[in-house]
Design a protein around this nucleic acid. Structure first.
Lengths: 98, 98
DNA sequence: CTTACATTTGACTAAAATAGTCAAGTCAAA
DNA sequence: TTTGACTTGACTATTTTAGTCAAATGTAAG
């Protein structure tokens, strides 16, 4: 399974770009991009969108990867992480009754 | 499907307690407890633990409810919310390769 | 009607979490 | 041993979120 950061790195390297170059395109510091690629910082939605656009990859693909990373890092150390996800699924499917 | 807040309200009402009373036990403002029960504010982990203890309900039950709420509110408006959860599951199951 | 009391609301502040920067540090290749 | 890509760490800025207080709402009783 590949993290969002790994996806970005792959895309960047496939195009033979340096951190510095992609960072410039995204208008962020290259140190930040480095951290994003190594999952040490989370990207912003706008940045994800720019990346998808630039590499011409479907937005929903990257957005999904990025969001699932966020969820993952939020609960990865929880003993019942899997139950949490199952319950979240049910809430999405059937909603929360008000 | 029941939200964390609803669970707490039920527990409280079952014991015939007022917001004010439970709030005192949790050492928070009753306005905050009111908001938590209506999912307008998220509780803190410590508070969740106290609630479980006080009402003598298994911690993991409330913690799971509370965490799944957090996940739910984070992605509920996403078009691909379900895919996000599935991918998060995969990341939990198989990990993210470093 | 009006008092009494539980709960909600809204606007605000405090605190915590997270994004972002800069300068120095690795590390490999030339 | 210099150069260039990337990483690291400590710091700051920004955003998000928790929390408070005082006033408002609703409702049941007197």
């Amino acid at each position: 399974m590949e993290s969002f950061g790994q996806k970005v790195r792959k895309l960047r390297e496939t195009k033979g770009l340096y951190l510095r170059q992609l960072a410039a395109i995204l208008e962020i510091d290259q140190a930040l991009l480095s951290k994003i690629e190594r999952n040490e910082r989370r990207a912003q939605r706008k940045q994800v969108e720019k990346i998808a656009q630039f590499f011409d990859v479907p937005q929903h693909e990257l957005i999904t990867s990025w969001l699932s990373d966020k969820v993952f890092y939020q609960i990865k150390d929880e003993e019942f992480a899997m139950d949490v996800l199952k319950e979240a699924e049910a809430k999405i499917k059937y909603g929360i009754s008000e």
